[in-house]
Design a protein around this nucleic acid. Structure first.
Lengths: 346, 346
DNA sequence: TTTATTTACGAAACCGGTTGCGTTTATGTC
DNA sequence: GACATAAACGCAACCGGTTTCGTAAATAAA
């Protein structure tokens, strides 16, 4: 198989047509210095022989790959898969390709991935950073190689780049206020990381809402939950079974916490929403058919992906770095059974 | 920004070291014709100047990109996102990259994508084909360009390539038999395409099980449901409200049908599992916290992705085509509330 | 008709790494 | 000391497009 190559090169076209490589190349690019007659001949031959310009050869000179890297902590997740779908929709339309990388929220993998992206393989990088907070110097190095960077959702605040996020403070605020309005008195915020800026912002919004509802020292109501499947359920059970701190409302800062919360309640025989109201930052399609259906702060994940893709493509095409452009796509509260004051039949 | 390039080339290294390009190149590849002393110097300089070999230049000669294309109909889907995660886990470990493309189940997009993959950008293609059944000649062309192909899950039977699937016949059979064992008499199979071979096989298994349970002409129990959100719900409602054909058991051939089925039942006030038992081909993480929790035929999606990735990487590295290797990863039935004879408290 | 200008194309360098071959110097053999 | 061999490196072609520059022919202007 190795010897078999049906790939027609410019050289081959030139020989068949009795022209030089340069002339054929220019004709294919519709250069003004080639006559219409020659162009027609070249086009016809290219069509017939199914000529496809070699990606490496064109990239070598142009230094463009028409490819962007997409780095995410996870892909089996409504938010991230929707965001990637949004990114892909835009890039496909613009004739770009995407390289997808999954970090599994491991900083070491993120670094490894970034490291190999400086070989010219990608023209830009879209990233949602992993949980562990650090200096982010691996990301700064991208700039040294002239590779534009756009964060989506999980941004690194200390780096100058494009950022596409949702109004996280507002989301946290609205979620907590909603619970308060539904009569909750002991509202807790479940986080999975102190380092992730979007979670801090959601938490800040949460705290603000609690302040406004005259709850003293709301920071005590913030809990860090491990992300490990069994550990997270364990941690939530402990919270739910605490004698006099037992919450009657929970704001879950990430979708991942939904299953452990539901499982913990099931096992502890805590009725949602009667004994505990739950609202979750989530894009879950299935939120509406959970039992009870889940109230969510729904992020515009697809749009975030689209905006991030547009931003990076523009940066690449204009060949200009992004100073600190920030696009904010508002989230919205979808009220469902899990936060209702009486169980709805609907 | 354009002028700024910190990228160190072999030429630069050669100049700094007073060596020729060739010598530096050979030293970096640990060639036997270079002395240990020189190799050490070159390595040190490369390290210091952060030399990264240019992707285009190396690809131009080697004709290898260490990249595979992954083409899926959808990504906001438990099966496909898990499969991609499996693929990525393997490729990342082996030092490969993946280009992800989403067809939205549109044949035209699939063709467009395949077309541009012949430029050397990818060394191989992993694909789960779209619903519309056709001649698949666009896929055959890949072979002409020497690009190996591996199908996962949704295969094209008429093409000789690697195939990684689950035991679809068995899955359909087990699902239907399970419903029969739970006392269902009018069991229906909901499909979304007649062209997709995996759905035909699931259907065949379904029919076999019904035959064994002495149901006459089981093909009448197969329904094609549109995939459009509102239309699918409409179609299911019609099925559920038919006077004397009203089903008491449903095998849903794809995850996508879960929400419309649950919604239709909710609206028609049909109780699952008391009046209707439902089992779905699905990898949904949230199956266990649906109301009622959903019995599923669970595919080993992550493993399917891994196997497919291994197959294509081997094919690339051995530089040999895949005749018709077929890997079958067995699915399993996860029994939950939606097919139980009495609602469980658990 | 002569000169200036445009048109249309060829020749060759270039992008950056790879590789076969030639050449020099050192080492080994008789 | 003459010659064969090997070790270590330089040179240049090559991969397949792109692009600059040069030039011959055709056309226009003088």
């Amino acid at each position: 198989m190795s010897g078999f190559q049906s790939n027609t090169s410019i050289k081959l076209l030139a020989e068949k047509l009795g022209l030089s490589k340069g002339t054929v190349s220019k004709a294919l690019k519709d250069s003004h210095e080639i006559s219409a007659a020659t162009k027609a001949k070249v086009l016809a031959a290219a069509q017939e022989l199914n000529y496809i310009p070699n990606h490496f050869a064109s990239g070598l000179k142009s230094r463009k790959s028409r490819t962007v890297a997409v780095i995410v902590p996870e892909i089996v997740d409504s938010f991230f898969s929707l965001a990637i779908k949004g990114i892909e929709a835009v890039t496909q339309e613009k004739g770009y390709h995407i390289n997808v990388y999954i970090t599994n929220d491991l900083r070491s993998k993120e670094e490894d991935i970034i490291k190999v992206l400086s070989d010219g393989r990608v023209d830009g990088v879209l990233i949602s950073v992993c949980r562990e907070a650090t200096d982010n110097c691996h990301l700064k190095k991208l700039a040294d190689h002239g590779i534009p960077l756009v964060f989506f959702d999980r941004v690194a605040d200390d780096i100058e780049a494009g950022k596409v996020v949702t109004d996280d403070f507002e989301g946290g605020y609205i979620a907590a206020r909603h619970l308060a309005e539904q009569g909750c008195k002991k509202i807790y915020f479940l986080s999975i990381s102190e380092g992730l800026s979007i979670l801090r912002k959601r938490m800040d919004g949460f705290i603000r809402a609690l302040h406004e509802n005259n709850i003293e020292d709301p920071t005590k109501n913030v809990y860090q939950i491990p992300t490990d499947k069994t550990k997270s359920e364990e941690a939530i059970k402990i919270l739910l079974s605490s004698p006099h701190h037992r919450p009657d409302g929970i704001v879950a800062s990430v979708e991942l916490l939904t299953i452990p919360i539901y499982n913990a309640c099931k096992q502890q025989r805590i009725a949602i929403p009667d004994q505990l109201k739950v609202v979750c930052f989530s894009n879950l399609l299935y939120a509406s058919i959970l039992s009870p259906s889940l109230s969510t702060i729904t992020q515009p994940a697809f749009e975030i992906g689209q905006q991030a893709a547009r931003l990076i493509c523009n940066s690449i095409e204009r060949d200009t770095f992004i100073k600190n452009e920030r696009i904010i796509c508002p989230s919205k509260l979808d009220v469902r059974e899990s936060t209702s004051t009486s169980v709805l039949s609907n």
